[in-house]
Design a protein around this nucleic acid. Structure first.
Length: 948
RNA sequence: AGGACUAUAGCUCAGUUGGUUAGAGCGCUACCUUGACAUGGUAGAGGUCGGCAGUUCGAAUCUGCCUAGUCCUACCA
């Protein structure tokens, strides 16, 4: 074996072997256990967040596979409608200078499919590199044939159940992408704007209470006044009560519109008069509907002003309530240009009362980055309320549990106030809506055109046109847990693996995805008794991975880390190129390059997949964002190296040697019995921690056991026996060395699969294990009967004695190379026994010249340290500096004195003694006695040295 | 506006139902190339657990208020 661990050499080839041998497939035996991967965007690449979640899923998957479950980790990718279409449109523009409209729908879709085939491999390569043990044979895509069927089926059935409807509604319109988006895709940002105060003249000679011939409305969106249909005031507002039922004459368009009273109006805000524009504001829409008003649309799909207004009733029919004429001056003007000019015109007309600064929230499209426009369009909606009810109940009654639990509140508050979901998108890439229209615009929903014809008895000579729109990406992802398993067919896989066990995902998509998955699954998937099935039993919500400063990783900040660069390393120049090349905002490149050179002056060295994974686990405390720290990664790479070298030591002393496998007496030393006992305890701990989804604690337990116990103590304790024990003891220790290591490898395999497999191949035969791979070996289980309690106490004592001697050495500056004599005295019977049994260990590990037990005779002047009652003495003659020893003793005495003070204070407190449980009091008393005795001895010793 | 979360060593974080001398890794100091490992070993320094009250015999842990920060939801034209 190499002296240092070289992950690059082994990782890729092991993955290939595992995949070729089919080890990732479900075994077909055992209780089913399944996890669905949150499908990444097919044309994207994995970032650290994916690596984090996928590593967690892989650990859980490997753990359960080794536990004997029939384990499936379902893999697949998402077509990611808007995101993918945008990528390809940009590419098309850059490479051919064409828009999608130049190509036409079919040719453009061909382009996207091509691109998907080309770039889809990136993700799967990355997943393989991470060691993800997914079932590649059943890889799925949200637009593959099976999914197409599932989506059609769901749409048609929801429509038949009146849970999907089509209508002319106000939606969030993205004027750049030319599509509707859902509420969730809108980001509200704080902006500094203005509040314009406009005078609206009263019609028919009406006057306000104060005698004015106009009222003043305040607005942040002057351009929408062209679509005003009313002015609203509060019903109890004395300033305007007399005007309710009267009219104003809307300037610029001379539209006579009513003044209405509505509780919605806040008397304190602005002037207390609100212009109502039902076709361009969500609140106004509701208010207009309440007052039986109409909708006056004044904007095009590009968010420019129309030549002629379009006027509708709330049921979508045309309205004749108003003249459709709009001022010609604004026709075709962009909304923001129109705003300027309308304000100018009001000013000219003397109708601009004032302009106040005003802070407001402006809605932006999360993909396009442009201001979203509420726009009246025909769209498809899912009626969400009825679907939400059982989905809320499932979390309330614990059928689905969020980890950590606090996310349930977030889920409830959104679900209990859920709005209908706009599912149609005016895009080309996605599942086309299975609805057809005849010439009169009548809609027919069916799985296929043929079905539509037969279902609705439409003659063959009637032309049908399929709806041009596609479905929101999240509509198909919502079917992920059952769509991937073959639904709508009643497949064996669906029966076996649904519901799945746990969903591992980020909090940012609880609404987008988790909630909708629960709603859709519970509506469509029922168990044998007809009860709705949940999609998963646990939702494990991970935090976000941020950069070293706690900033979100993003391309425009240039602080994105590619998990593969952590694994394979990358030269500084390549990293700079990667971060600054192909940027949407090239002006940032210089800053990013500078920052990158500063943070990664040496580039990034290779750490290997196992180190990356282990780092991610160690940081995975629940529900908390993670600030990425390269130093931790280095630390865990060192940990892998530690394991590697421990294995080298074990193999060096066991390969081709007698490990007791072919008979012969075997006796287990104290160290052997101790490490076996500790192994059982650690196995139990890890089982609990993994069960609680606390992979951070589990990884810490592993680290601590392997490094601080197996390597630091057990391997050291094995050396005296390997070097000079008798044959039976040597057999026992060799056997224990190799068996415990073998168990450690299995214990660690779900976390660090590659290094454990590599070492296991050589260790397993020595430990009497057979098998082609560690992947399918049984996960170690704790066996209480193997715990030797005596050994735990004895080794604790042994460690205390050795540490005491090392402490004296360290503090006294005695060269580690110098062997020293040590004596023990004043101990009890246990101390004496332990001394006799472990003399050789202490001598070896503390590097002693001699070790003996003193009787009552006065010892030579020594540096002393207490281990319980027992004194450890290092004679001072020629070794120890008196001043240094005094200093050391005083330090110890200080500690003891403080401890005595603290404890006696506590025990003198009548209330503590009478109120605290007896065992706590007893414990404190024992501690006090020990501290007092230590204090006494230390001060005696100090006196003695001083008196010399 | 409502809600959630976070605040513990120089840095990044653990701390399970209130009872420890408050832990780990990294960093830091000193010494050490000893036959597994310098990606290492040994010993050490370093914290009034954001602040103020309260409950309790006892609070990092429970309650209230405050401060700072992060996030989510909704929104006043």
């Amino acid at each position: 074996m190499e002296k240092t661990y070289q992950p690059g050499d082994i990782e890729q080839s092991w993955y290939q072997t595992w995949e070729q041998e089919g080890y990732f497939k479900p075994s077909g035996n055992g209780t089913p256990y399944s996890i669905m991967i949150p499908p990444p965007n097919v044309t994207g690449s994995l970032h650290m967040g994916h690596a984090f979640q996928d590593s967690i899923m892989d650990a859980l998957t490997r753990y359960h596979r080794m536990k004997g479950n029939n384990t499936l980790w379902q893999v697949g990718t998402d077509h990611a409608g808007i995101a993918t279409q945008m990528v390809v449109e940009r590419k098309l523009a850059a490479e051919e200078g064409k828009s999608r409209h130049d190509l036409g729908r079919d040719a453009f879709l061909d382009k996207i499919w091509e691109w998907k085939e080309h770039s889809g491999g990136t993700i799967t390569r990355q997943l393989r590199r991470l060691g993800a043990s997914v079932d590649w044979d059943h890889e799925r895509f949200t637009m593959d044939e099976g999914f197409y069927k599932a989506v059609q089926e769901v749409f048609v059935r929801l429509y038949e159940d009146d849970l999907i409807y089509r209508g002319k509604r106000l939606v969030n319109w993205d004027p750049k992408l030319h599509t509707a988006i859902s509420d969730l895709e809108v980001e509200n940002k704080d902006k500094q704007g203005s509040l314009w105060h406009f005078r609206y003249p009263l019609a028919d000679g009406s006057r306000t209470a104060e005698g004015a011939d106009h009222i003043v409305v305040a607005t942040t969106r002057p351009e929408t006044m062209l679509g005003d249909t009313a002015v609203a005031v509060h019903p109890e507002d004395e300033r305007y009560q007399n005007l309710v039922g009267k009219f104003v004459l809307l300037p610029l368009v001379n539209r006579r519109i009513p003044i209405v009273a509505d509780e919605y109006v806040d008397r304190e805000f602005g002037t207390g008069c609100v212009k109502i524009t039902p076709a361009h504001d969500f609140n106004d829409y509701d208010l207009g509907k309440r007052h039986d008003s109409v909708l006056i649309n004044i904007m095009s799909k590009d968010a420019t002003i129309l030549e002629q207004a379009q006027i509708f009733n709330f049921d979508g029919s045309q309205s004749e309530a108003f003249d459709t004429t709009l001022p010609t001056a604004y026709a075709g003007l962009d909304r923001f240009e129109a705003r300027k000019q309308i304000v100018a015109e009001f000013e000219q007309l003397g109708l601009l009362e004032k302009i106040d600064d005003h802070a407001l929230k402006v809605p932006y499209g999360d993909r396009s980055g442009v201001v979203i426009e509420p726009l009246l369009t025909d769209q498809w909606f899912v009626r969400a309320k009825p679907l939400a009810e059982p989905a809320i109940a499932a979390v309330e009654n614990g059928d689905i549990q969020f980890v950590p639990k606090q996310y349930e509140n977030m889920y409830f508050s959104w679900m209990r106030d859920i709005q209908d979901w706009c599912i149609s998108r005016q895009l080309w890439w996605g599942h086309r809506i299975p609805a057809w229209y005849d010439d009169s615009g009548k809609v027919y929903v069916a799985r296929t055109e043929a079905e539509a014809r037969s279902k609705y008895s439409i003659a063959d000579d009637v032309a049908l046109m399929q709806d041009d729109d596609v479905l929101d990406t999240w509509f198909s992802s919502a079917l992920w847990t059952f769509g991937t398993l073959g639904w709508p067919e009643a497949t064996e896989r669906l029966r076996t693996f649904h519901p799945t066990d746990v969903l591992v995902t980020g909090f940012d998509i609880i609404f987008f995805w988790v909630a909708r998955m629960i709603m859709m699954t519970m509506h469509f998937i029922k168990d044998d008794e007809g009860k709705p099935q949940v999609p998963f039993k646990y939702v494990y919500v991970t935090g976000l991975i941020r950069d070293e400063n706690g900033d979100k990783m993003s391309k425009s900040k240039g602080n994105v880390l590619d998990p593969l660069d952590m694994i394979d390393g990358i030269a500084l120049e390549d990293l700079v190129e990667k971060r600054t090349g192909n940027m949407m905002q090239p002006q940032l490149a210089e800053k990013i390059a500078k920052r990158t050179r500063k943070t990664f002056a040496e580039g990034i060295s290779a750490h290997g997949t196992d180190a990356l994974r282990f780092t991610l686990y160690s940081l995975a405390s629940t529900g908390r964002d993670i600030n990425w720290d390269m130093k931790r990664l280095e630390g865990y790479r060192n940990f892998c190296n530690k394991i590697w070298n421990a294995a080298r030591y074990v193999l060096m002393n066991t390969e081709d040697q007698d490990c007791g496998q072919s008979g012969g007496d075997v006796s287990l030393s104290l160290a052997d019995r101790w490490i076996i006992s500790r192994l059982q305890q650690v196995e139990a701990t890890i089982e609990k921690q993994v069960g609680d989804f606390r992979l951070d604690l589990a990884s810490h337990s592993l680290y601590d056991f392997i490094w601080n116990e197996y390597c630091d103590w057990y391997l050291e304790l094995s050396k005296p026996i390997i070097n000079s024990g008798d044959a039976a003891a040597q057999r026992g220790t060799r056997r224990t060395l190799v068996r415990v290591l073998e168990a450690i490898l299995r214990l660690a395999h779900p976390f660090i699969p590659f290094i454990t497999e590599e070492i296991w191949q050589r260790v397993a035969p020595l430990a009497g294990k057979e098998g082609a791979t560690i992947m399918t070996q049984a996960y170690p289980e704790s066996d209480v009967s193997k715990i030797d309690k005596l050994s735990l106490g004895d080794v604790q004592w042994l460690q205390d004695v050795i540490i005491a001697i090392r402490n004296i050495r360290g503090e006294m500056d005695i060269s580690p190379a110098k062997a020293i004599p040590v004596s023990l005295r004043h101990g009890n019977a246990d101390d004496k026994r332990r001394f006799e049994e472990n003399r050789s260990y202490i001598t070896a590990l503390a590097k002693l010249e001699s070790l003996d037990w003193l009787g009552d005779a006065e010892p030579p002047l020594s540096a002393t340290q207490l281990v319980g009652e027992m004194e450890v003495l290092v004679p001072m003659a020629g070794l120890i500096d008196v001043e240094a020893e005094l200093k050391r003793l005083n330090k110890e005495l200080d500690k003891s004195t403080k401890e005595v003070g603290r404890l006696s204070g506590k025990l003198n407190n009548e209330k503590f003694v009478s109120n605290a449980p007896a065992d706590v009091v007893a414990k404190e008393k024992a501690k006090l006695a020990e501290a007092e005795s230590a204090q006494q001895r230390l001060s005696d010793q100090i006196e003695k040295i001083k008196n010399l």
